[in-house]
Amino acid sequence: MSAETIDSWRVTLPCTRAEAEAIDAADDLTIDAVLMTTEEVEDDREHWRLDAYCEHEPDAAMIAALVALVPSAAGAKPVIEPLTAQDWVTMSQAGLEPIREGRFVVHTSAHPIAPLEGGRAFLIDAGQAFGTGHHATTAGCLAMLDGLADKTFDNVIDLGTGTGLLAFAAQHLWPAAAITATDIDPAAIVVTEQNAAANGVSGLRLVVADGALSDVIATHAPYDLVIANILAGPLISMAPEVAAIAEPGAAIVLAGLLETQRAEVVAAFEACGCVLEAVDRRGDWTILRLRGGEVRYVPTKPIDPKGRDGWALDL
C-alpha cells in the first residue's frame, strides 16, 4: 500500500445471480456499506460478485453480515482491500461502457460513441478526480439536469465539480448562462480544464474553493441553479452557505448521499428555507432536487466547516 490516505475499504465475495437480485431488490438492509453486484460471466447465473464499500475497516461482524447475504460464499475467503482516492478513480472509470442519461452520452476513449440526434457526448477518461457519469450519483445528476431543460437558468454553479462533467452538461443545456465550477482539490480543477479542452467546452469560471466559502463565489452570487454532487456529511455542513448563495426559488441539485442519509440532508436544507421537490433513488444512492426559499437565506451564525473531511471525493 502506498503512502496515500486510505479513504475506504472494499470487501468482495462471490455470489449467484439469485443472491445478487435479492440484494438489489432489498430495501431494508442494515449493513453500513454500499453494496454493488456485478455479473462476472455473461449469462452465467452462478458467477456473480458482491462488492461492499465501507468507510472503516470491516470487522468480523461486518464480514458475517455480508456472508449471510450470499450463502453460496460460505466457504469462500472474502477479499478485503483498503482503497485510496486514486483506487476509486481507477476502478470506477477504467474500461466502462458508455452510458446514456436523457440527451447525454458519457464515454471513455476506449468506448467512443455518438450521441442521439440533438444530444451531446462527453469524453471523460480516468484521471485524478471523480465524476465520470458511470456512478449512480453522477448519472442521476445528469438525469436531473436533463429534466430541467425546459427551464431557463442564467447563473449556474457546480460545487465539487470533480471532472467537470456536470458543469459541461449545464453549459450544453443553458449555453447563455454563466457557469462556475469549483472544487476544494486543485487537481480536480486541472482535470476539469483538460476535460473541457478535450470536449470543446470553453468559458467556464473555474475556482478552487472550500465549499461556497470563496470571495469569487460570493461576488457572482446569487445562483439560480446550484449543483453539489459531494457526500452527505459535507452537504449537511454546507447547507447554510449553499442556501445563502442561492437565488430565491433557485433549483438545487444534491447528490453523493445514501438513501439512509436522505432525511438528515433534507432536514439541513429545509432548516435554511429550502423545499424538497424531487427524488431520484438509484440503488443505495439518492439524488435530490430542492427549491430555494422565497427570500434569500441569510445564515444566522458563522459557517461551521466541521464535517467536510473528504468532500472532494466527488462521485
Rank of each mutant, 00 (worst) to 15 (best):
S109M: 08
S109G: 15
A110R: 03
A110C: 00
H111L: 03
H111P: 10
P112T: 11
P112A: 08
P112V: 13
I113H: 10
I113L: 15
I113Y: 00
P115H: 08
P115F: 05
L116T: 13
G118R: 07
G118V: 07
G118A: 09
G118M: 07
G118F: 06
G118Q: 06
G119K: 13
G119Q: 10
G119R: 12
R120K: 15
R120L: 05
A121K: 02
A121I: 02
A121C: 01
A121F: 01
F122S: 06
F122V: 01
F122Y: 15
F122P: 10
L123C: 08
L123F: 13
L123D: 10
L123E: 14
I124Y: 12
I124K: 09
I124F: 07
I124V: 14
D125S: 13
D125Y: 01
D125F: 06
D125I: 04
D125N: 15
D125G: 05
D125P: 12
A126P: 09
G127T: 02
G127F: 00
Q128L: 04
Q128S: 07
Q128F: 00
Q128H: 03
Q128R: 03
Q128D: 12
Q128V: 03
A129W: 03
A129N: 07
F130L: 07
G131M: 08
G131E: 13
G131L: 10
T132S: 15
T132F: 08
T132K: 11
T132R: 05
T132P: 11
T132W: 13
G133D: 10
G133F: 06
H134Q: 06
H135G: 00
H135M: 02
H135Y: 01
H135S: 02
A136K: 12
A136V: 05
A136T: 02
T137C: 02
T137K: 01
T138C: 11
T138S: 10
T138K: 08
T138F: 14
T138Y: 11
T138D: 11
T138E: 08
T138N: 12
T138W: 13
A139R: 11
A139L: 04
A139D: 05
A139T: 02
A139V: 00
G140E: 09
G140T: 05
C141K: 08
C141D: 14
L142F: 04
L142E: 09
A143G: 12
M144C: 08
M144Y: 03
M144L: 02
M144T: 00
M144H: 08
L145F: 02
D146V: 08
D146A: 11
D146E: 15
G147T: 03
G147F: 04
L148M: 09
A149Q: 14
A149E: 15
A149C: 10
